[in-house]
Nucleic acid binder design. Structure first.
Ligand SMILES: [Mn+2]
Ligand SMILES: [Mn+2]
Ligand SMILES: [Mn+2]
Ligand SMILES: [Mn+2]
Lengths: 223, 223
DNA sequence: AGTTTCATTTTGAGAACTCAAAATATAGGG
DNA sequence: CCCTATATTTTGAGTTCTCAAAATGAAACT
């Protein structure tokens, strides 16, 4: 009974929703799951009931769902495949970090264990993918890490972009053009809550201003 | 309406059956198709009717099916992906030619055009895959080639293995162990139709005897 | 021509996944 | 406490793909 692509996508969406909630055993509301998977609300309800039947999730009607231990393990494996594939496409095949997500979204469901471990070895067992997302180990472990973002970090301090919390290609291309991709350094000059904006000084000493929503998606580390 | 994996597998099976029949517009019997796809006869009938409806095949009840021009084009693209993937797995990822078929069987349905063209470029636009199977061009063209096999080639003449007409992993491992993989040279010493066998002298000057069925699957070129 | 054999098609059904729209539950505001 | 807005579930239905087994067609054999 190996899981279908559909099941894998539900589990992965759930995993990511739970990580975003910061709370291990929080329940993910049905609507949010349906939205993440890209399916009508009723469809998610039906699917989740089947997943609960298989022991992959715990379902509390009207409250939400949460992954079981088995479900979380499976989800971590999907995420591992997804991120190793992205890293492979960028490092070995020379594709852009802005365009690998869609390919990985499909490939994650069909690459064999053999193949994924070969990729892992070729890449030297990387710990993060091109977007700075951590890659779970083969046992499903993931190093926990608290991030600052351009919205929460100290002002006038050199910081390095370590992770981008959005896969939208046009957003990633924007970051690349503005020298804001993972690995690049910058300082936050000022924040203006009235204008809903954040002013940055990037590597090339160029000053740019971006919205707070965009700023919150750029995760950083203080140098 | 991009074709599903299922449809792609039917078209590919049909394409290969037609090539084997040597006759461009021969009809492939329903039973053979069902068998190739690995499905019950009635299932193939239902599917073929749907494919005919979509204009991908021509279906003659009780006689068989044949690919339409559109169907043949699509099938050639699946085959192109399959073989480029196999070549990539062997040449770039260092996997064995005996084990790449299964992976390619899945990957052929999900790799994007972008990705497949990247592979093609990295490989220097190869014309054959690790089994010696020709790789169709991006337009679906395939260089026609008549092969001799160890069953039909002249005796006591140096020949080179150029293609293997079977994907079974244990058969391929056997060939590898006996120095009969594509690129290796040998001579046919004798044929014994009563014993149903063919006697060979391989590169290492080792003399081995194989059955005629196996011999017919090893395609060669006279040096 | 009649009968057996084999391939093929038809039938009836089920699994997995999906949606739109109706029904219902929950939570908040008055 | 009622009423309303919103989230969730239920219902009825459709798509794609599959099978087993019955029915039928074609071919082959006497
Ligand atoms: Mn996916
Ligand atoms: Mn990523
Ligand atoms: Mn396939
Ligand atoms: Mn091949």
């Amino acid at each position: 009974m190996l899981p279908s692509s559909t099941v894998e996508n539900y589990l992965k969406a759930l995993y990511q929703a739970q990580v975003a909630l910061e709370d291990e055993k929080a329940l993910v509301p049905m609507g949010q799951l349906a939205n993440a998977v890209g399916v009508a609300p009723g469809t998610a309800t039906t699917m989740v009931k089947a997943l609960a039947e298989s022991g992959l999730v715990e379902y509390e009607p009207y409250l939400g769902v949460r992954l079981s231990t088995a479900g979380a393990k499976l989800a971590a494996m999907v995420l591992r495949r997804h991120r190793l594939i992205e890293q492979f496409l960028v490092e070995i095949m020379g594709m852009s970090w802005t365009e690998v997500h869609e390919d990985a979204e499909q490939l994650e469901h069909v690459v064999s264990d053999r193949l994924i471990e070969r990729m892992d070895a070729m890449l030297g067992h990387p710990s993060v993918d091109p977007h700075g997302d951590p890659i779970p180990t083969a046992d499903g472990d993931i190093a926990p890490h608290r991030y600052h973002s351009l919205l929460t970090c100290p002002l006038h301090t050199e910081v390095t972009v370590t992770r981008v919390a959005d896969q939208d290609a046009s957003f990633l291309r924007f970051l690349e053009a503005q020298r804001l991709k993972p690995g690049q350094s910058l300082e936050v000059e000022a924040r203006d809550s009235a204008a809903d904006s954040v002013q940055l000084l990037t590597e090339g000493q160029r000053s740019i201003t971006i919205g707070t929503k965009a700023a919150s998606k750029v995760l950083i580390e203080v140098a």
